[in-house]
């Protein structure tokens, strides 16, 4: 009886079936014609584009700017010089490698090229702040050195004026000063890719790994 009563209570506002049919019809029509935007939508998109195009492109000088790849790692935004970035790649089919330091996660196959993947958090002895995506690999290269570092996600390319860079407090971030290039006002931590790539620690490790 209780179920019946609740049922009755639920049905106390009778269903307006014509309204329901109408709404379903509308939804169906919308789905059907969803691929062609409505005139208003079209107008809105065009206006947005016009607004974007109307913006004066920021003036920049070749000496003063730094082309970086911005990425997220452990809820912080990092950036690395794009000249040392060969490409970004999704983390797929990571093979863990035994007998390596903790910051070496394993190796991946990028179009037939075997690369080691490092976790710079562990490399920098940063504290763990919970699990994150860690599904992107930024492949760095300099001279003979080539490896990938993990990232949660890639934000994109960015140009940073070198003047805007300020030395960050090492205690604040915990990253060793030698690997830091600076920090922007937008709190983007810019890594020193060249130093990172030519670090002996990594090489030593590589030797150890090789041996």
């Amino acid at each position: 009886m209780s179920t019946l009563n609740t049922g009755h209570r639920k049905q106390s506002t009778p269903v307006n079936w014509p309204e329901v049919h109408r709404r379903l019809e509308d939804a169906w029509k919308k789905t059907e014609h969803g691929w062609t935007p409505t005139p208003e939508e079209r107008q809105r998109i065009l206006k947005e584009r016009a607004r974007v195009l109307a913006q004066e492109p920021p003036r920049e000088e070749a000496e003063d700017v730094l082309e970086v790849v911005e990425f997220l790692l452990a809820y912080e935004t990092y950036a690395i010089e794009s000249s040392f970035v060969r490409e970004v790649y999704p983390l797929k089919e990571l093979t863990p490698l035994p007998g390596t330091p903790p910051f070496v996660l394993g190796i991946i196959n990028v179009r037939g090229h075997i690369l080691s993947v490092l976790d710079i958090k562990k490399f920098f002895d940063l504290p763990e702040k919970g699990l994150t995506d860690l599904n992107k690999v930024i492949i760095l290269h300099h001279e003979a050195m080539e490896f990938g570092i993990l990232a949660d996600s890639i934000v994109g390319m960015k140009t940073i004026p070198i003047k805007a860079l300020q030395p960050a407090l090492p205690t604040l971030t915990g990253i060793r000063e030698q690997y830091l290039r600076g920090i922007t006002p937008e709190r983007i931590i810019v890594l020193h890719a060249e130093k990172l790539l030519s670090d002996n620690n990594i090489v030593v490790n590589e030797e150890i790994r090789a041996s």
Binding site: V69, S82, S83, E87, V88, P90, K136, I154, G156, M157
Partner: peptide, 15 residues
Amino acid sequence: QSNLLAVNAAIEAAK
């Protein structure tokens, strides 16, 4: 993947 591709393209463009 498109995002990554775009990033890669941007990297290449920067180069």
